[in-house]
Design a protein around this nucleic acid. Structure first.
Length: 379
RNA sequence: GGACGGGUGGGUGAGUGGUUAAAACCAACAGACUGUAAAUCUGUCGCCCCUUGCGGGCUACGGAGGUUCGAAUCCUCCCCCGUCCA
């Protein structure tokens, strides 16, 4: 069995959702899984102890572009790799920089060979190719690497979406050729996932998936989601693609989603997700609870003695009131971000654990109905 | 007692005759955030009106008068505050 292997534990007969185990060189991950985002080698506001000992996070993300421009992959390699650098001995998935093609669209130029980024820090030019991006991620010591892709904006014409999709397929092929060569001389294992693109055009999505299957990758990602398209379009894109991807390989929906959407993606065959919402929104005052959203700065919470989420046993909810959290937020105290992030990440992890549990018990359809009945705003 | 300086919307503080309901910042209130250029960004922020549009009415720059077509802006008196001199 390769070191990064996927094992299906249970399947929902009604939806095809799966509960599985993803084996990596840095531990086993129960799927479906939500992966907190640690772009710069840190999940903002959380320590390794918070993540591992308290939240039991098994895998988190880091970002190739951001770590490349600062502090640089060779520095990290010289310090023993990203795991040691950030004191994280569990799994790490690194995004390739493909998302920065979208988010830093004003600072990059796409060519057939790759992407030239103008550093958002100091303006220096950096060329990312499918091959160099694999090398950078190997320098970091990533467990699951992503191919360089082109994440197009929304809306985008069918013609451009096709160009971007075909370029992404070509880049994936180049990345995999380079990857196989590099792997041949290495003892440690690192997986490489290609990324399905095609914007909101199902036929492009399907074609892309079909062509990427030839790579026989250890897992497949669906990218280009949550770039401004209506939620129904994101779901449709996943519905178009997931059934075409190998059942025995994990499927990763990149950059999603809202808490209530997690179960929807899982029900469409997704095994892995990541999103900045729990961490970013926490810092910006938007907290997710089992009874809906709490926007903590609202005046209604000024003297609210209740815990943020009555149904949550996280560090924050077992110790602090909404009134205190609001006070910290309004005072711009750094403790606010720490407590808020701990809770929001816990909420996402709990949601995923509940979904997995429902799959194992064979009650995912009932679980879906329950999730859909949660109001948007907490009372 | 005298000489200066100053009193502006919840706060700090611009503005020195009209396009000023009054800059900017803060506070307050509300919204956004989806493979993180984010401890960020946006909106509202005197009152009342058809929620109709850069719409209408009223009130407002210490107080009271006055000059002027028009005053937060100019004049007079008064009341406060600060600094300095006696």
């Amino acid at each position: 069995m390769p070191q990064t292997a996927f094992e299906i534990v249970a399947e929902c007969p009604a939806t095809g959702a799966r509960a599985g185990l993803l084996h990596t060189p840095h531990g086993v991950i129960e799927t479906p899984v939500f992966m907190p985002v640690g772009t710069q080698g840190t999940v903002k506001g959380l320590t390794e102890r918070d993540l591992a000992a308290e939240l039991d996070v098994r895998i988190l993300l880091a970002n190739t572009y951001h770590l490349y421009v600062r502090p640089g992959p060779e520095l990290i390699r010289g310090l023993g790799g990203l795991h040691r650098f950030m004191s994280w001995d569990r799994a790490i998935l690194t995004d390739s920089g493909g998302f920065q093609v979208f988010s830093l669209s004003g600072l990059r130029r796409i060519t057939e060979e790759g992407v030239v980024f103008q550093s958002h820090l100091n303006g220096d030019l950096h060329t990312f190719t499918p091959e160099s991006t694999v090398d950078t991620q190997l320098a970091l010591g990533s467990d699951i690497m992503m191919v360089l892709d082109e994440c197009p904006e929304y809306p985008v014409s069918r013609e451009y979406a096709r160009q971007a999709m075909e370029r992404t397929v070509r880049w994936a092929g180049a990345a995999f050729r380079h990857y196989r060569t590099r792997m041949a001389g290495m003892s440690t294992r690192h997986a490489l996932f290609p990324i399905v693109q095609g914007s909101v055009y199902p036929e492009l999505r399907r074609e892309c998936a079909g062509r990427l299957l030839e790579l026989e990758a250890e897992g497949y990602a669906i990218g280009g989601l949550s770039v401004g398209e209506p939620r129904a379009e994101s779901m449709a894109a996943v519905e178009a693609v997931a059934p075409l991807l190998p059942r025995e390989r994990p499927r990763y929906a990149m950059g999603v989603g809202m808490p209530e959407e997690l179960a929807e993606y899982v029900a469409r065959g997704v095994d892995m997700m990541d999103c900045v919402l729990p961490t970013r929104n926490a810092r910006n005052g938007c907290l997710f609870t089992s009874t809906g959203r709490v926007i903590i700065k609202q005046a209604r919470y000024r003297d609210d003695p209740r815990p943020l989420d009555e149904g949550c046993d996280c560090y924050t909810c077992t110790r602090y009131s909404r009134a205190y959290l609001r006070h910290l937020f309004m005072s711009r105290e750094m403790l606010y971000s720490v407590l808020a992030t701990r809770h929001n990440v816990k909420h996402y992890l709990d949601r995923m654990r509940d979904i997995r549990h429902a799959i194992v018990l064979g009650v995912l359809p009932e679980h879906l109905r329950a999730v859909r009945s949660i109001p948007a705003e907490a009372g």
